[in-house]
């Protein structure tokens, strides 16, 4: 159904007063869309080496109420998750994303008490564990990709969301994150959902006082792991 497509487009063309030819305008639009030219990006991340970027990421994440833990290897994840859940007085269960990078975690060896299941959430999981596409140091922002390995429901339905960030995934700006996505997926192919997540869910709708855990996760715990 195209509805009023021609009428609306016709009205726009008629209203726009332009001296440029149709061909020039088309060329300008095509170039802009395919060039992915960056506009100004903040200096705060420009000259940082990877170690400093990771420090900035941690600072920015803590500023938006995330908790952050650094790990030396992926094998340390199960014990770290177990400690975190225990420390927060949470049930020893985890719903894990079916992500290839998380496939071989030594749960039974290092955290046998945790009940681990895999797949999307239907609303009855308290804790989730997911991977991410990138983590942007500029504002402490995670980028999560949907797909077979990344159910979107794990990012929003559970009360507590734990995200694994590998050090090589830490970037300076959002633009770095987009470039990596284009490289990974080829061209302008986007996942169905790309979630940029900066801290846990919050609301200021009652007298502008901020409360965490409005509808999404009440807590966001980030594990930064050496590659």
């Amino acid at each position: 159904m195209s509805g009023s497509r021609e009428a609306v487009l016709g009205k726009i063309k008629q209203s726009l007063s332009t001296d440029a030819s149709d061909q020039e305008r088309r060329k300008a639009v095509q170039a802009r869309i395919s060039d992915h030219a960056r506009n100004l990006t903040p200096k705060r991340t420009a000259d940082l080496d990877q170690a400093r970027l990771i420090d900035l990421l941690e600072t920015k994440m803590k500023a938006v109420d995330c908790t952050v833990q650094r790990l030396a290897s992926m094998d340390e994840i199960p014990a770290a998750v177990a400690d975190y859940l225990k420390g927060q007085n949470l049930p020893a269960t985890i719903r894990q994303a079916p992500h290839s990078s998380l496939a071989n975690l030594p749960w039974s060896k290092n955290a046998p008490m945790i009940e681990v299941s895999q797949g999307r959430s239907y609303g009855d999981d308290l804790n989730s564990l997911t991977a991410c596409h990138a983590a942007v140091a500029e504002t402490g922002t995670l980028m999560l990709e949907s797909g077979a390995e990344g159910p979107t429901t794990l990012n929003f339905l559970p009360d507590n969301h734990i995200v694994v960030v590998r050090e090589s995934q830490v970037t300076g700006t959002y633009e770095d994150g987009w470039d990596r996505l284009r490289e990974k997926r080829g061209g302008t192919d986007m996942p169905r959902a790309l979630n940029m997540i900066t801290g846990p869910s919050r609301t200021g709708d009652i007298e502008q006082t901020i409360f965490l855990g409005a509808h999404g996760p009440r807590s966001l715990h980030v594990l930064i792991v050496k590659d």
Binding site: R120, A148, M190, I197
Partner: peptide, 30 residues
Amino acid sequence: RVLARSATGQEFSSYTTFSTGPRRSDDPDG
């Protein structure tokens, strides 16, 4: 970069989501 700072004074809002089309064949949700 100017939106959240102007609106609520946050550097970035908690959730900024880019949605592209319906659920894909191998998507578990959406």
